[in-house]
Each structure stands twice: as structure tokens, then as C-alpha cells.
Design a binder for these strands. Structure first.
Lengths: 255, 255
DNA sequence: TAGACTTCGTGTACACCATACACAGTTTTA
DNA sequence: TAAAACTGTGTATGGTGTACACGAAGTCTA
């Protein structure tokens, strides 16, 4: 390789080696007193307790009774640690028991499962994702959703598109739920009162007359009335997507 | 008020005052040499040039020729500054000219406009959003989308749900595009080659036989083949949503 | 007009943060 | 036995947001 040419670019394969624990490890020196899993697990613990902002290399090291710099023998950077935490926090999907048999039921269950995970471990949504999914657990989830559509006449192209669409929807909806939960925690205003508060803000803003369509929504008191549960809201949007899938399936069956 | 009761909670109304420039300003002391708009604009400039990570209070102050701490006379915290930047970076929607007349065309245009903005100013997606939209420009966008459905028999409840759904979709899709752009920038691997690279990673992973449905997708070479443009991908998912909206409209017309 | 009151910008200081680097100790291979 | 490779550690660098105290400057009230 010509010198100076390879301007030190980042290689996604390194991350994959970390995720799959396939990093070649020389046999020479002393074996580490820790394992990659222990380091990542410590990070996950802290994130579960204090959120992602609480995860610092110092705290991870402290929890393991080790100096900060020794962590870098296991993980190239904090960014990689976060990617590894995301993978570890994604559970192996185990839905054999009550797993429905029709594609619609399965995709619904999949979306719900994803939302449940992301709302519980909301710090996962705070991790800046810099690559497409590459870890084994994440692949397993993809496989699950794709498998849900196995009995349909959809093309593989279709399935992939739908997978992305539904995952995106679940992430998005989770993001909103989480942001609402945090607002509640931070303000001390209850979940129910927040609709009231937002309603008043909108009233103040629409009083200028600049937002006619928004004004009509506000006047309909959607915000002020006690609203549907987050679960219902989620299913509402999901049904839109699944109707679209159904239509596509019908089309593929015909053609 | 009983002492010790109000345990110093965060008040969203303060943020709204900032966003609407309605913060009461005493008339006593000297007038500031800067304005809130100048501070926020400086932040936006830096974000445009270096991304959100480049925005620090020190750099903003430096750009304005002022000490760091003086910024806190205009903005309570960096978090608020970011919220203000989000609002300022959202342009006043001006789509009078080629604005379609049917709801479907309008919602499509809306979604495209949103995607364009978020991909251009990708740092907006990096801002941790902690409240529902409260700024004038954000309200204007909401109004636009709601107004797009004015001629339909949808209830105000429906419209709000659809607004959230479509905005969420646009944000989500933008997030993916941006993350791809960043991967390209960081690895030096071209946009086209990335499919190739990811394909090989998937091949390696599916070789274990653990992911049957994923294997079928990989074997179909969806990733390896040069793929649809991001624009086409976007419209693909959007059509799903809009079909759902059409179905709901038909239903409301009947009932 | 004098003094009280506010608000300004500034400098200093603190408690963090990620990580580059050199080093000494330990383990394995040639 | 010596070389090589890998380990954990301490130190150091250059960042981060913001609390606090200060003097200067402007505006209101008596």
C-alpha cells in the first residue's frame, strides 16, 4: 500500500469482530483479568440504573475495580462500547410459546416486543447508531420479523422493506413514549396533566390566529380530554402499516 | 407556598417563553450587547459547519467575540440552546407555489419537505428532544400538515394521529439516510459499495444457519444488487401510510 | 439629582470527560 | 534463555458545562 494513501479510515469489520467475539487474540502475553462481556455488562448495568448519560469509562472501570485505561485493552473506544451494549441489551428473542401463526399476529407481536424493550431500556434509543445492525441478537430479531412473513407471497425485497418500516415505526413510537416519560419525571407534572398543559400552550399559540388548522384541532379538545393509552396509540398507527402490508400481499397473490 | 415543597422542578413554560421571545425582561440594567437570536444563530452556524458535536458553549462564545459565561445571560443552559437551534433551523414553511390541491399530494410534499430539511441539517436529528413541539415554526409545520387534510372527512383526532405518524416516518427515514451518509463519510466506502460490504457480513453471519429467514433474503441478493434510490425507498414506505389514510377516509365518508 | 436597584460581561474555579503515551510486570513462544 | 507479545497502571492533555463572585454600566425612584 502506498504510504499516506490509507488515511486511517474506520473499518466496520472491526466492530463486527467485536460483536461476534471473533477478534483474533494472540496467545503470547498474560490473559486479561476481565472479559469483554464483563466490561459490556458493567456498562449495561450503569445504563439501566442511571441512563446513558451516566455511562462513563471511569464509572465502568470503577464498577469493575480497574483503572480507566485498562478498559481500552478490551474496547477500542467508548463508541464501540455503546454499540456492544446495544447488542447485549437486545435479548435473544424467545417467543415460541404464544407466538401467533398468522403473519399479522406475528408482526404485531414483534412490534410490541420491540416497543416493550425500547421503553424499558430507553437508553438504547440514546445511542447514536452509526452502522446497520450487525450483531447476532439483532440479526435474530431481523430473522424473526422476516420469518413472520414466510408464508406470504411477498418477495424478499418486500419483506425487507416491511421489516425496516415496522422496526422504524416501533423505534419512533418508543422514542415518543420515552420522551413523554422523561418530561413527566422532570417536571413533576403527571402523565394525565401533561395533555392539559400542552393544551394551554397550544391555546396561547393559536390565539395569534396564525395556525388555522391547528386551531381546529385544539378546539376539538383532543389534548385536554383524557386520551387513549400509549398502547392504543401504538396499535392505531401499526394497523395503518399492516393494512398496507395486507394490500401488498393481496396484490402479490393476484399478480 | 410551603418551603421545601417545590423541589426545583423544570418548567416547560420557561422554554416556551424562550421560543416565543416572550421572556419578561426587566428594564433596569444595561441592555445586552447581543440578542438571543444572535446567540442561537451562532450555534446553528457551527452545527451546519461541524455538526452538533462541534457546538460547545466556548465555540459559540468565541464566534460572537464574547466570554463563555456571558452566554448564560441569554440562555439558561446548553440544552435550551439546542432546543432553540432546532426551532430556528426549522424554516417557515413556504410552499404556496407548487402546493398540490389534494390531500395525498399535500401530505407527500410535506413528508418530502421534512426529509429534505432533516437530511440537509442532519444535526437536528442529534438533538435530544425533551418536549413536544412548542416553537412557532414547528407549530407552522404542524398546521401545514393538518391543513393538508382540511378537505377530508377525517376527525381532528384522526388528523393528529396521521400527522404524528407521517412526521415520525419522515424523521425515521431521515435518520437512516443520515446514518448511511455518515458511514460513507467515515469509511471511505462508497454508497454503492456499502451494499456489497453489508451483503458479505450477512453471508458470514447466516453461514451459521441460525437465521433461516434472513438467509433467504441474503440469497436473493437484495443487498448486493444496486438498490433503489433513497427517494424511491422513501416513497415506498410513504405509500403504505397514505394507503392507510385513504382507507380511513373512505371509512369516514361511509359512516 | 442622588442613591437604590438591576442587569451586564468577565475571570476564576470545579468537577467531570475521553483517550494518547510510556512503562513495568507477566506470560508464552522460538 | 531470550525475545516477543500482551497486560494493567499512572500521568498528562485538551476538552466539556456551569456555579459563583465581582465591578462596571445603565435605569428607575425618592
Amino acid at each position: 500500500m502506498p504510504p499516506g494513501e490509507a488515511s486511517e479510515k474506520w473499518d466496520p469489520a472491526h466492530l463486527m469482530d467485536l460483536l461476534w467475539r471473533t477478534r483474533p487474540r494472540g496467545t503470547r502475553g498474560p490473559r486479561g483479568s476481565l472479559s469483554l462481556d464483563e466490561v459490556v455488562a458493567a456498562g449495561v448495568e450503569i445504563a439501566d440504573e442511571e441512563g446513558l448519560a451516566g455511562v462513563s469509562m471511569r464509572k465502568v472501570a470503577g464498577r469493575l475495580g480497574v483503572t480507566v485505561m485498562s478498559l481500552y485493552r478490551y474496547v477500542p473506544s467508548k463508541e464501540d462500547l455503546l454499540d456492544l451494549m446495544f447488542e447485549m441489551a437486545t435479548p435473544e428473542p424467545t417467543m415460541a410459546a404464544d407466538w401467533p401463526t398468522d403473519w399479522r399476529g406475528r408482526l404485531t407481536a414483534y412490534a410490541h416486543e420491540m416497543r416493550k424493550l425500547l421503553v424499558e431500556r430507553s437508553w438504547m434509543l440514546d445511542i447514536p447508531i452509526s452502522t446497520p445492525p450487525m450483531g447476532p441478537h439483532n440479526f435474530a430479531w431481523m430473522d424473526l420479523a422476516l420469518g413472520a412473513m414466510a408464508d406470504t407471497p411477498l418477495t424478499e425485497d418486500d419483506k425487507l422493506g416491511i421489516l425496516i418500516l415496522i422496526s422504524g415505526y416501533a423505534m419512533n413510537e418508543s422514542r415518543q413514549i420515552v420522551s413523554m416519560n422523561r418530561a413527566v419525571a422532570r417536571t413533576g407534572v403527571s402523565y394525565e396533566e401533561w395533555g392539559e398543559v400542552y393544551h394551554r400552550m397550544l391555546e396561547r399559540a393559536t390565539a395569534t390566529g396564525r395556525f388555522p388548522a391547528l386551531t381546529r384541532v385544539v378546539e376539538s379538545e383532543v389534548f385536554a380530554r383524557s386520551h387513549a393509552t400509549a398502547e392504543e396509540d401504538f396499535d392505531y398507527g401499526l394497523s395503518f402499516l399492516l393494512d398496507g402490508v395486507a394490500a401488498l400481499i393481496a396484490q402479490r397473490e393476484k399478480g
